[in-house]
Simulated assay, not measured.
Amino acid sequence: MLLHLSDLHFGTEIPERVQAVKDFCQQQQPELVIVSGDLTQRARFQQFYACRQFLESLNIPYLVVPGNHDIPLYHVWRRFFNPFGRYQLFFGATEKEIVSEHFYVIGVNSIRPKYHTKGYVSTKQIAEVEAKLKSAPEHLYKLVAVHQPFYCEPFDKHVEDCPVSGEIALRHWADAGLNGLLHGHLHQSAVYHLNQFYHLDVAQSVLDIHAGTTFSNRTHHGEENGFNVITAQGEIDAYLYDDTSQSFQKWKRIWPINEASLV
């Protein structure tokens, strides 16, 4: 089991929901925790510190990637000359890999200081990730974590935030064996079957997997705080916070929706 968190926005966290994630991890013991960006609300030292303390307290291997909130917004000098300084102080390199019994996950930094919310993937990043996917063990479920989604509904205002060169990256990575992309940014749980939207000519299903905001008070679309759980078989369940039990409960299976959805 892989636990997919996103948009923690430390600085706006709700303490009882932070505790509920800890309780879930203690009970279920996922093999990996992945956080797809926006660890903090304003890239402040104390917010990064709180996030690091939280992740270390889970006692589970984890991988994080930066979100647009993880670089300074108002401090212009730091934004352009040392945008990831505080992030790196607590989490090291902005791009890492992690491997477990069933999963192989590559972190990609799509954040650029000159953009406020829009993502960007370079030709170098595309080539490096492609090479890593090709050399990954075939039996592992292969994922890339990147903050901005590669697909949004056409009417969604965030469609313009999809990364520059995202479709090019997707096609190269799909050919190299990618199974899915893990995103945040929209604060909403969803799965999109990219084979259909981009007519990918590959044998495996390639999914765009969106997680909601895990425990921030900055919820969108009327959706409660939540996260995704991905099984070794590639099934994806969305969990939402339940006030009555003060715990995260399974909301619904968001992949596969039905057998006809599979390639």
Rank of each mutant, 00 (worst) to 15 (best):
G37M: 06
G37E: 04
D38V: 01
D38Y: 02
T40H: 01
R42H: 10
R42W: 01
A43H: 01
A43Y: 01
A43W: 02
R44P: 01
R44I: 03
F45L: 11
Q46L: 10
F48V: 00
F48W: 05
Y49E: 15
C51N: 05
C51I: 02
R52K: 14
R52C: 02
F54V: 11
L55M: 06
E56A: 08
E56S: 10
E56G: 00
E56N: 14
L58C: 12
L58N: 13
L58I: 06
N59H: 14
N59G: 10
I60M: 09
P61V: 04
Y62F: 15
Y62C: 12
Y62S: 08
L63N: 11
V64A: 10
V65I: 15
P66N: 09
G67R: 00
H69Q: 12
H69I: 01
D70I: 00
D70L: 06
I71Q: 05
P72K: 07
P72Y: 02
L73P: 00
L73F: 07
Y74F: 12
Y74L: 12
H75R: 14
H75K: 15
H75N: 15
H75A: 10
V76Y: 13
W77Q: 13
W77A: 15
R78I: 06
R79N: 05
F80V: 10
N82D: 13
N82Q: 14
P83G: 13
P83E: 10
P83D: 06
R86T: 15
Y87P: 01
L89Y: 15
L89W: 14
L89G: 09
F90S: 01
F91Q: 09
G92Q: 05
G92W: 10
T94W: 01
T94M: 03
E95K: 00
E97D: 07
E97R: 03
E97K: 08
I98E: 07
I98D: 07
I98A: 07
S100A: 03
E101L: 11
E101N: 03
H102K: 11
Y104N: 12
Y104I: 02
